[in-house]
Design a protein around this nucleic acid. Structure first.
Length: 323
DNA sequence: ACGCCTACCTGCTTGC
DNA sequence: TGCAAGCAGGTAGGCG
């Protein structure tokens, strides 16, 4: 399941391989892949002849910027993949949208489970229409309804209006994280998965970041000390960067644009390791369900001190190696 | 604000 | 072996 590091890997590959390419034809094989409000036929028509200028990423979406200023957004969701196929490559029964390029190659959007969505929008700043964190969701919905009513062009900024900050951006400081956590009583795990709280983190990296920060996924967000917020901030960035370095974690059927799986799955500390020894203390990793999501953690290294206090776990031996 | 539910999909694993 | 149920999870939308 592609999260920030996986999507970043795909975007970087595509930037190298298809920047400058011209789209000569588009075949939509599963209509619902094309995001409302553009009907699939219009989508194909609109793209014919377009030149791909640059490929980037926002949240978990690949952004394909066209030379005329428009932006194609590709949300891979669960099983989506963007693959560059050389001429003669056998067809793929799971290719939902095929972009034919002028040089004979194809850019294929493959998606076994059909959850992913591709949209085409007017360009402009990604920050246009940005709504401040907490109220993001409801306000962004109202705003989009307004845009629809007025038949105004959808801008790519509207698509991401409800998304939270990019965790790897220089402006995402520990201070900023601290401000966003303040007054939030939700569990840490739930918040890390909330795209309007912070963009790009999914189930794998949420569990990894919490393990590295030695924080319980059940912990109420507004009970963290400054030191704990600092640890969380560093951990989030560290696990995401490591993910990018290793070209992503391949679980399910994630592959990069080269069709190769990433190497990060082998380096995960807790995700998918239920019952296996914790890499820090050797006790078995446990699994529980939080907010309908499977959650992996070490109950010993990540004690839930919401009700008790950190001191209880902190003062009891085994901690001399802290620091 | 928050938690919980359902829908969207299909392939894989599990249990009988 | 075959078949059905259960599971995986990112996101949108709805309800209390």
């Amino acid at each position: 399941m592609p999260e920030l590091p996986e999507v970043e890997t795909v975007a970087r590959d595509l930037q190298r391989w298809i920047a400058g390419a011209q789209i000569t034809g588009v075949e939509v094989r599963w209509d619902r892949t094309i995001r409302h409000p553009l009907p699939p036929e219009r989508f194909a028509e609109e793209l014919r002849g377009s030149v791909i200028q640059r490929v980037g990423r926002r949240a978990k979406s690949v952004l394909i910027q066209l030379a005329d200023g428009r932006v194609m957004t590709v949300a891979l969701r669960m099983t989506g993949a963007l693959l560059v196929a050389d001429p003669g490559t056998p067809d793929d029964r799971y290719a939902r949208v095929v972009f034919r390029l002028a040089d004979g190659r194809e850019l294929r959007y493959r998606d076994v489970r059909k959850f992913g969505r591709i949209g085409l929008f007017e360009g402009g700043s990604l920050r246009a229409g940005r709504v401040a964190g907490r109220r993001g969701l409801a306000e962004a919905r109202r705003r989009r309804a307004k845009v629809r009513e007025a038949a105004a062009p959808y801008r790519v900024g509207d698509v991401f209006a409800r998304h939270g900050p990019e965790p790897l951006s220089p402006s995402f400081s520990a201070r900023r994280l601290s401000d966003r956590l303040a007054g939030r009583s939700a569990r840490l795990k739930t918040l890390l998965l909330d795209q309007s709280f912070i963009a790009g983190i999914g189930n794998i990296y949420a569990d990894e970041a919490l393990w590295l920060a030695r924080l319980s996924p059940l912990r109420a967000a507004d009970t963290l000390s400054q030191a704990e917020v600092g640890r969380l901030h560093r951990s989030i960035r560290k696990v995401l960067r490591q993910g990018i370095t290793n070209r992503g974690a391949s679980f399910s059927d994630y592959v990069g644009a080269d069709g190769e799986p990433g190497e990060n799955a082998e380096r995960l500390a807790v995700y998918g390791r239920t019952g296996a020894p914790c890499l820090r203390c050797g006790r078995p990793i446990q699994r529980l369900v939080i907010g309908q999501r499977s959650t992996h953690f070490c109950p010993y290294c990540q004690p839930d001190s919401s009700s008790g206090e950190a001191a209880a776990a902190g003062s009891r031996g085994q901690r001399s190696s802290d620091r």
